[in-house]
Simulated assay, not measured.
Amino acid sequence: MPLLRINATVNGPALHASTRSIRNVLVQARNGRGVSVIMVHGYKYSPFVTGRCPHRQIFAAEEWPAALGLAQPDTLSLAFGWHARGGLAVACAAAYDAARDLAEVIAALRKRGPVQVIAHSLGATVALAALPYLQSGDVGRMVLLSGAAHIGLARHALATPSGRSCHLVHVTSHENALFDLVFERLVSGSGAIGRGIAMPNAHQVQIDCTTTLKCLAALGFPLAPPQRRICHWSSYTRHGVMAFNGALLTGQLPLTRLLTALKDVPTAPSVPCPAREKTHHVNKAPTERATA
């Protein structure tokens, strides 16, 4: 099935570079069968800014969709764009607005079955903040890549009906520690999720851990070792990692099998120093637009 390109707008979700009705397209899509995967980009991208459009860059067919192995006849792939520009705090606020549009798209696909979501960086905030607007079973698995989101948001979202039925895997490494610390400094809230979420349905995979890399290789997913001490993009640029991410999304790699392989691997927080927890308020009450 062709890739659907969707943007968050002031008037709700809309098809990218098209005047077609998104409602009609999603009604047609939800009547199909197979895995549904939504990709969400992070900071600095915007489908409304020339030269920074995610649909022409990381969401181009030969980039994320190909690397994740989504070009299958029964796979519904959606690329979700939003305006992640401006200062980090401004973009974070925009992420909460975009979450409502993401939730509307997911809810529209409810008849098709649980949606799988993959999000990088600040896209993790969009993905997590969408959960309180949804129903149990709407999201099956959420794969976050070097997520820029607060622990408080993650715990709140995973405690909602849709969050409790969702399994979250955070793929990260100590290469991202500096970015986590910057996020904590510039965006008020609890510590970054790289410190660990501590929820029964949330799991962290440290791809800079030698033991973890050996376990993943034994599962058939060999990853290259870290190439840099500081990198915010290794969770999708490291050789082999997108095949692993894609297998988690499509079910090729069952989560139980991954967790069994990693059961004896200690999970060290990606951020090296402790942070003081703060109350983190998220999401206004769900609207009919998001739950229809």
Score class of each variant (00 low, 15 high):
Gly194Asp: 05
Leu88Cys: 06
Ala60Thr: 05
Ser173His: 03
Glu62Tyr: 11
Leu181Ala: 08
Val171Ser: 07
Ala290Leu: 08
Ala127Gly: 03
His83Val: 03
Asp97Pro: 00
Pro161Arg: 13
Val35Ser: 13
Arg164Ala: 09
Ile6Ala: 10
Thr125Lys: 08
Ser173Met: 05
Ser77Pro: 00
Val282Leu: 13
Pro47Cys: 05
Ala89Lys: 13
Lys214Met: 09
Val282Tyr: 10
Gly152Tyr: 02
Leu145Arg: 05
Leu249Gln: 09
Leu134Met: 12
Val40Lys: 04
His239Val: 06
Thr9Tyr: 09
Leu255Val: 08
Arg100Gly: 13
Ala129Arg: 05
Asn176Trp: 03
Ala127Cys: 04
Gln28Ala: 15
Ser136Arg: 15
Met1Gly: 13
Lys44Glu: 14
Arg257Asp: 06
Phe80Gly: 12
Leu158Ala: 08
Arg289Ile: 11
Leu216Ser: 05
Arg85Ala: 13
Ala148Gln: 13
Thr260Glu: 13
Leu3Ile: 14
Leu4Ala: 04
Pro132Trp: 10
Thr210Ser: 11
Pro114Thr: 09
Val126Cys: 03
Thr172Leu: 01
Arg276His: 12
Arg30Lys: 15
Val35Tyr: 03
Arg85Met: 15
Arg56Tyr: 11
Arg141Val: 09
Pro225Ser: 02
Leu255Thr: 12
Arg110Leu: 08
Ala157Pro: 11
Thr75Arg: 11
Asn11Cys: 11
Ala224Gln: 12
Val40Ile: 14
Pro200Ile: 04
Val37Thr: 10
Arg5Trp: 02
Gly191Glu: 02
Ser46Arg: 13
Pro13Ile: 13
Gly163His: 02
Val10Phe: 12
Phe179Ser: 10
Cys231Val: 01
Arg33His: 14
Ser77Arg: 11
Ala98His: 05
Tyr43Cys: 10
Ala148Lys: 07
